[in-house]
Amino acid sequence: MKKRTDELNTELLILPDGRILVQNLTQPMAEVLRQLNPRDQVIAPRAAKNTKRSS
């Protein structure tokens, strides 16, 4: 299927040990991940990087 380039795309890989690897993280997805694990020190500052539209 042809990929549309006007949609937001993030890829996640969830490992058996609970770690989540992320590619092309967008701010809305960062916010979802932050809510799942508010103590994640890698995601928290990225979720906080709001653009005006998404804040």
């Binding site: 380039t5 006007d6 795309n9 092309n24 993280l25 967008t26 701010q27 709001n50």
Partner: peptide, 20 residues
């Protein structure tokens, strides 16, 4: 040709949000 154009927050903290 291009396959992605969007604002992302996965790169270095000092560069994000970046329009990639």
């Amino acid at each position: 040709r291009f396959f992605l154009a969007q604002t992302e927050v996965s790169d270095e903290l000092e560069l994000i949000p970046t329009f990639a």
